[in-house]
Nucleic acid binder design. Structure first.
Ligand SMILES: [Mn+2]
Ligand SMILES: [Mn+2]
Length: 565
DNA sequence: GTTGGGATTG
DNA sequence: GAATGTGTGTCTCAATCCCAACTT
DNA sequence: TGACACACATTCAA
């Protein structure tokens, strides 16, 4: 199914985005941003085409001689027109360092030997054995001025990228999506559910919010440019983070704070890390603070923080994260602390022959040779059935959560208010589970009708129909209900940690099995699912695998499958 | 001479 | 043998081109 | 370009 895009595809897409934002955000755009769109649309088509081509590429400077667009035969006049109207700079005043990425190794070597020849400074002919970075250093020392580069080539710099960023941010609500979303959709590669787009709902409802989000992305970008040991710059950067003025920004800023602070912690800048983590409201900020305090021997403060976490955890994950740590800490400073009771799931041990492929597939195939049918699904099964069953509620028309056609989920999907806002719908749907046939009907119906459409919980690639059929047949309705209930408690955190395998014995029933190869142990999120299984009576176990013929990795004469309990 | 990481394209 | 921290690989949209490191 | 699960190393407490 080769889908052809119209010849004007990138013009159309660009105009669509620009015009949407230009009209929807007329009250929030500043004058220069509006002019950016208005004047661009007055330029000749070849000029606009060239501008969009360059604007959608990842760098901002280009070599004219490397550009070849069959639909723009006269690049020179298009570029001249763009420069005339301020959308392009020809041969911008960049220093040698900024221009180097335009050059190949061969280019740099040629420039160097030309410069050396002029100065009668003979260097060895062996420039080509140097690595790229070494050549660049040589160039920085020996190429006096970017003029020598401009003698060899014409350079174009695309201007007004910052204005386009504003348009993209307003349109998508973020800066990680871009024009390729149009292409992927129109090629049929990622298809989105159709939901009502009300023009009154926008990603941002004030200029201040737009600016704050832009500032956040600036900081995020700058942090990625910094060296990990550049402590001062990171602290400075953290202090420049914008005040979070909506939930989305709060989430983004706190995630960046955590990222920076975690790095400071790694660099042993503990005090600064503590300060920054304290500004963050999101896990694992408090946990990290407690651990830092403990390494600083400030045990009582650390324990106090653990007590705070225990009494008002952000979520189950955060509460769980410090249980073992706090107990050890309490023992160290002889303070009282409830003894942590770790759930121990049922275990069994398998000795199998090692072969190519991951241990999960090996165990799956082993089970399939026994009298069972077994699938390696991890989170796919539970999440996908959830997504299919609640499909229309996920995409229910709630005010303000859909503002562009490229959303795979409503804006609030991973926030607690997702459940709060849709409480009656979710409750009614959950009550439907126990009615025989309803779950199966809705899941299969959505599997048919929505097949291939993006959904935050559905993984179409790994969700096979026979898995779905068997799971719906074997897993009792009450079990589905309890699985959904846990997912709804925290869609972000509980969508992970589901056991590797689902096993359907020929004799009936089912079981979730987590596979652990040599040296692997249960992760915390996996243990929490198992704890829950135990509480609600869902059969589950951990299957530890050892390799036949190996002891501690060295071969031993033995074979055959051994199973022990 | 191959390959592996990118950027670009539709 | 827990409990930590840290590093890796696998998803990737797929085809193509360019370029820089190399017997992988 | 992360999210997620796993692999591996180090440390520490019975
Ligand atoms: Mn797994
Ligand atoms: Mn596993």
């Amino acid at each position: 199914m080769a889908i052809e895009l119209p010849a004007d595809y990138y013009l159309d897409n660009f105009r669509d985005l620009l015009q949407f934002v230009r009209s929807t955000y007329a009250d929030l755009l500043i004058e220069s941003e509006k002019q950016f769109a208005d004047q661009l649309m007055d330029l000749s088509e070849p000029a606009v085409r060239l501008y969009i081509r360059l604007l959608c590429r990842s760098k901002s400077i280009f070599r004219l001689d490397k550009l070849h667009y069959s639909e723009i035969p006269d690049l020179i006049s298009a570029a001249a027109e763009l420069e005339e109207s301020g959308y392009l700079q020809i041969n911008p005043e960049y220093d040698v360092q900024s221009l180097l990425p335009l050059l190949t190794k061969q280019d740099i070597a040629n420039l160097l030997s030309a410069a050396a020849a002029c100065e009668a400074d003979q260097k060895g002919k062996s420039l080509s054995v140097l690595k790229r970075a070494e050549l660049e250093n040589l160039a920085l020392d020996n190429l006096p001025d970017s003029a020598v580069i401009f003698q060899q080539m014409t350079v174009l710099e695309v201007l007004n990228q910052d204005h386009f960023e504003v348009y993209k941010l307003c349109f998508f609500g973020n800066l990680y999506q871009d024009m390729t979303d149009y292409v992927l959709r129109d090629l049929g590669l990622t298809q989105f559910e159709t939901y009502e787009l009300d023009k009154q709902y926008r990603a941002f409802d004030s200029r201040e919010k737009i600016c704050s989000h832009l500032a956040y992305y600036q900081c995020s970008y700058r942090f990625d440019q910094l060296a990990p040991d550049d402590i001062d710059a990171q602290i400075q950067l953290a202090s420049e983070l914008p005040e979070p003025i909506d939930n989305a920004l709060q989430r983004r800023v706190d995630r960046l704070r955590n990222k920076i602070a975690r790095n400071l912690e790694r660099q042993k800048s503990y005090e600064q890390a503590l300060d920054l983590f304290e500004k963050s409201a999101r896990p694992p900020a408090r946990e990290r603070r407690a651990r830092i305090l403990a390494t600083l021997q400030r045990d009582h403060e650390a324990l106090e923080l653990c007590a705070q976490i225990a009494s008002s955890p952000f979520n189950e994950e955060e509460r769980h994260s410090v249980t073992a740590f706090a107990a050890r800490l309490a023992k160290r400073c002889e303070s009282p602390w409830p003894k942590p009771s770790l759930y121990k799931p049922p275990q069994h041990h398998l000795t199998l022959k090692n072969r190519e492929g991951s241990v999960e597939y090996i165990v799956r195939d082993y089970f399939n040779e026994q009298s069972t049918n077994c699938f390696y699904t991890e989170n796919v099964l539970c999440n996908s059935v959830f997504g299919l069953f609640f499909w229309d509620i996920v995409f229910a028309p709630v005010a303000g959560v859909f503002y562009n056609p490229f959303q795979q989920a409503p804006a609030d999907f991973y926030e607690p208010e997702f459940v709060r806002t849709r409480e009656p719908l979710l409750k009614a749907r959950l009550d439907m589970v126990r009615n025989p046939g309803q779950l199966r009907r809705l899941v299969l119906q959505h599997y048919e009708r929505k097949h291939g459409l993006q959904n935050p919980m559905v993984n179409w690639r790994y969700l096979e129909l026979d898995l779905l059929e068997q799971a719906l047949e074997r897993i009792p309705l009450v079990d589905w209900e309890t699985l959904f209930q846990r997912l709804l408690l925290d869609l972000r955190a509980h969508r992970t940690g589901f056991p590797d395998l689902v096993v359907f014995p020929d004799v009936g029933g089912y079981e979730f099995v987590e596979v652990k190869g040599p040296g692997d142990t249960l992760q915390k999120n996996q243990l929490r699912w198992m704890e829950y299984f135990a509480k609600v009576g869902i059969k589950h176990s951990v299957c530890h695998v050892e390799w036949a013929g190996e002891i501690d990795g060295s071969p031993v004469v033995e074979e055959s499958v051994i199973e022990t309990d």
